[in-house]
Amino acid sequence: MEKVKIYSRFERFWHWTQMMLIITLGLTGFEIHGSYHLFGFEESVRLHSASGWAFLVLTIFALFWMIVTGQSRQFVPVRNNVKSQVMYYISGIFRNEPHPVPKTPESKLNPLQRIVYFGLIILVFPVQLITGFLYLYFHYPDNPFALEGLETIAVLHTLGAFLLVVFVMIHLYLITTGHTIGSNLKAMITGYEELEQTEN
């Protein structure tokens, strides 16, 4: 076992800022949706819009960073080991078997994570951002390009929001399935994780 730096400073900043913004967006978004009363409708609308902008800026920074550093490849799904990763979660984990795909700084994400995060980056985030900003700026029928009302946009945006909530729930649980219960969380905070040495 060796302490290896696995998350850079920017990645950690990105992750935790994103967490805060997604929580804010979720709490305020579902208040606007009418699910409950929390901050008050007007406060929620303003917070949601401001957080949406912050999320957009953060996403642009993250994309820029991923492309410049080449870290984007971390999120490209792979075909190998998808099955063994699934098998690990549905049986291996209960038999104390080791993770089928070792975590290394070169490949931080397991094959399932790659698929899910890729889905978020390529589908859910863009859909949320695009529908979110259309919601903000093109919701009246007499705008330059008429979107006869908000319905389609709002429904898509709500769907994305539910998917994100489910993602966050599962994500929070799977944090505890690392090498130790706290190792994943610790890695995302400190950047370092105790990893099995693999021979290069």
């Binding site: 920017f10 967490m19 805060m20 804010t24 406060e43 995302m188």
Partner: peptide
């Protein structure tokens, strides 16, 4: 220095961003 960095990037800066967002919203 690692602890300080962790504190900064994993807690203080994200909170800073959130506070700015809240300020803008207000």
């Amino acid at each position: 220095s690692n602890t300080l960095t962790a504190l900064l990037v994993s807690l203080l800066l994200p909170i800073g961003v959130l506070l700015i967002t809240v300020k803008v919203a207000s």
